[in-house]
Write a protein that binds this DNA or RNA. Structure first.
Lengths: 119, 119
DNA sequence: CTATGAACATTGTGTTCATCG
DNA sequence: CGATGAACACAATGTTCATAG
């Protein structure tokens, strides 16, 4: 059992939720998460977001589609990669989330215990 | 800013508290911590305890004294290393604890947020 | 087996670089 | 610059080994 939850798992959790809701692409999700965690002084590194997304693809949870960002190719040629759940992706994702939940609770317990024990 | 609190810092916190209370030595503190975290399935590795203690000595918080475990040398020759606060060690330790507290609260906040956001 | 310590190996992560339109 | 990706480097760990009594 590792000491704390890994950053990777933490980020995957958010990515799954974001794919559940809107159709997002990496860079945008990165920017959203940066904003989200600003109050905590935590800046999720770009590489971790992409690594997490690639892992989720590797694990058969997500698949990728390429699109142009704007609707009019003459205006915007920027390619982006959208992520969607595979056939059994949602199922796998929910299972993963359950496992992470257990770990989150464990970590919260240990941190709260440290506060109770040492202050 | 790192993602989560380091195991090292977490352990140092407990070691400081343990030195504050009883006079303990490494192996004993290790065993106590193992017992303490059993409910969480977390087994603090032996190497981390010694590394943490050595760092606290390095930082001028603690100093070491060598003793025989038993009072009667003819019975028990086992050498142990006891740790005590240096002159300004307690002061340094309190400062360190304050800093760790900030990080603990930050981490608890981020983990609770993850639960709130994704479940 | 208790007790301390260090060496070694590895994994996660941070930083930098590369590419493309 | 927005967007994706990979290479590289490193620090924090996990595991194993060494020593002593």
């Amino acid at each position: 059992m590792a000491f704390m939850i890994a950053q990777r798992a933490y980020i995957k959790l958010y990515l799954i939720s974001m794919v559940e809701q809107r159709r997002g692409y990496g860079y945008q999700m990165l920017e959203e998460l940066k904003e989200e965690f600003k109050p905590f002084g935590y800046v999720p590194p770009q590489s971790e977001i992409y690594r997490a997304l690639h892992e989720l693809v590797q694990e058969g949870v997500l698949y990728r589609t390429k699109h142009l960002k704007g609707n009019d190719p003459s205006v915007d040629f920027q390619e982006i990669v959208l992520y969607h759940f595979t056939d059994d992706g949602l199922e796998k994702a929910e299972l993963y989330k359950k496992q992470v939940k257990v770990d989150l609770d464990r970590c919260i317990g240990m941190l709260n215990k440290a506060v109770a024990d040492n202050y």
